[in-house]
Amino acid sequence: MRKLSDELLIESYFKATEMNLNRDFIELIENEIKRRSLGHIISV
C-alpha cells in the first residue's frame, strides 16, 4: 500500500466500492487513506 500514490489509492478505493469487493479489502484501503490523512477526500 505504501508504494501507491495518493491518487492511485483514492482511485482504488472508489473502484473497490463500486465493484462491491470484499469488505476487508476495502477496509485495508480505508485504513491506509486515514494513515495518510486523506480521509476528507472520501469522508472516512
Rank of each mutant, 00 (worst) to 15 (best):
11 E>T: 09
43 S>P: 10
14 F>L: 10
19 M>Q: 13
1 M>C: 12
3 K>V: 09
27 E>C: 07
27 E>T: 12
28 L>F: 05
14 F>T: 06
35 R>M: 04
32 E>N: 01
44 V>N: 14
43 S>R: 09
35 R>W: 05
42 I>C: 03
34 K>H: 12
18 E>H: 08
11 E>G: 05
33 I>Y: 01
33 I>V: 05
36 R>C: 00
42 I>L: 12
33 I>M: 12
27 E>D: 10
11 E>I: 11
43 S>E: 13
34 K>R: 13
37 S>G: 15
39 G>L: 12
5 S>N: 06
17 T>S: 10
30 E>G: 06
32 E>L: 02
43 S>C: 07
26 I>Y: 03
35 R>T: 04
42 I>S: 04
28 L>R: 06
37 S>F: 12
11 E>K: 11
11 E>H: 10
41 I>L: 14
21 L>V: 11
15 K>M: 11
9 L>S: 00
31 N>P: 00
16 A>Y: 07
3 K>G: 15
8 L>D: 15
28 L>Q: 09
19 M>K: 07
8 L>H: 10
26 I>Q: 03
13 Y>G: 00
13 Y>D: 00
7 E>K: 13
17 T>D: 04
25 F>M: 11
11 E>P: 02
13 Y>E: 00
4 L>A: 04
18 E>K: 08
24 D>Q: 08
1 M>T: 05
39 G>N: 09
39 G>E: 13
1 M>L: 15
3 K>D: 15
37 S>Q: 14
36 R>K: 01
12 S>T: 15
5 S>I: 05
4 L>V: 06
36 R>N: 00
9 L>V: 03
9 L>K: 01
26 I>C: 04
15 K>R: 13
6 D>Y: 06
25 F>I: 12
25 F>G: 03
14 F>V: 08
41 I>N: 06
8 L>P: 01
30 E>S: 08
16 A>N: 03
10 I>T: 03
3 K>S: 14
1 M>K: 02
7 E>C: 09
8 L>N: 08
36 R>Q: 01
11 E>F: 11
34 K>P: 00
25 F>Y: 14
15 K>D: 04
30 E>C: 07
28 L>H: 05
8 L>K: 15
1 M>W: 15
12 S>K: 13
14 F>Q: 06
44 V>W: 12
41 I>M: 14
2 R>N: 15
16 A>M: 05
35 R>E: 04
33 I>C: 02
44 V>C: 06
7 E>D: 11
4 L>Q: 04
14 F>Y: 13
25 F>D: 06
8 L>Q: 15
10 I>L: 11
1 M>V: 15
10 I>V: 08
36 R>F: 02
27 E>W: 08
44 V>D: 12
29 I>D: 00
37 S>K: 14
4 L>Y: 10
34 K>N: 10
44 V>H: 12
39 G>Q: 13
35 R>Y: 06
4 L>F: 09
6 D>K: 04
39 G>C: 15
31 N>G: 07
22 N>D: 14
28 L>M: 13
23 R>F: 08
25 F>W: 14
21 L>G: 08
26 I>F: 04
30 E>L: 14
25 F>N: 04
18 E>P: 02
8 L>Y: 07
40 H>T: 06
2 R>T: 15
18 E>C: 11
42 I>A: 05
11 E>N: 08
42 I>N: 04
39 G>H: 13
15 K>Q: 09
12 S>M: 15
26 I>T: 03
36 R>E: 00
41 I>R: 05
30 E>K: 13
17 T>I: 15
43 S>K: 12
22 N>M: 07
2 R>Q: 15
25 F>K: 05
19 M>P: 02
2 R>Y: 15
23 R>Q: 11
12 S>H: 14
16 A>I: 04
10 I>C: 04
16 A>G: 04
29 I>A: 02
11 E>C: 08
30 E>F: 13
31 N>S: 11
1 M>D: 03
38 L>Q: 02
12 S>I: 15
33 I>E: 00
21 L>A: 14
10 I>Q: 02
15 K>L: 12
2 R>M: 15
5 S>W: 04
27 E>R: 10
23 R>L: 09
43 S>H: 13
42 I>R: 02
20 N>R: 09
11 E>M: 12
2 R>P: 06
30 E>M: 14
18 E>L: 11
39 G>D: 12
2 R>W: 15
20 N>Y: 06
33 I>L: 14
32 E>K: 00
20 N>E: 08
13 Y>W: 14
27 E>S: 11
5 S>Y: 04
43 S>Q: 14
35 R>S: 05
32 E>W: 01
33 I>K: 00
25 F>R: 05
41 I>P: 04
43 S>V: 12
43 S>L: 13
10 I>M: 07
21 L>Y: 11
19 M>H: 09
14 F>N: 06
9 L>F: 03
34 K>V: 09
20 N>G: 14
29 I>R: 00
29 I>E: 00
5 S>K: 04
29 I>S: 00
23 R>D: 07
32 E>P: 00
12 S>R: 08
12 S>W: 15
10 I>A: 03
42 I>F: 05
22 N>E: 11
34 K>L: 13
3 K>R: 09
12 S>N: 09
43 S>D: 12
16 A>R: 05
31 N>T: 12
40 H>N: 08
41 I>E: 06
25 F>S: 06
12 S>L: 15
9 L>G: 01
1 M>Q: 03
38 L>R: 02
9 L>P: 00
6 D>P: 03
30 E>V: 15
8 L>M: 14
18 E>I: 10
34 K>S: 06
41 I>F: 13
17 T>V: 15
14 F>E: 05
6 D>N: 12
26 I>L: 08
15 K>H: 12
1 M>I: 15
32 E>M: 02
8 L>F: 07
34 K>D: 06
5 S>R: 03
44 V>Q: 14
42 I>T: 05
31 N>C: 06
24 D>N: 10
32 E>C: 01
12 S>Q: 13
38 L>S: 02
4 L>K: 03
39 G>T: 12
36 R>P: 00
40 H>F: 11
8 L>E: 15
18 E>N: 08
42 I>E: 03
24 D>E: 13
41 I>K: 08
44 V>K: 11
4 L>H: 03
40 H>D: 07
14 F>C: 08
16 A>K: 03
33 I>A: 02
15 K>T: 09
33 I>Q: 00
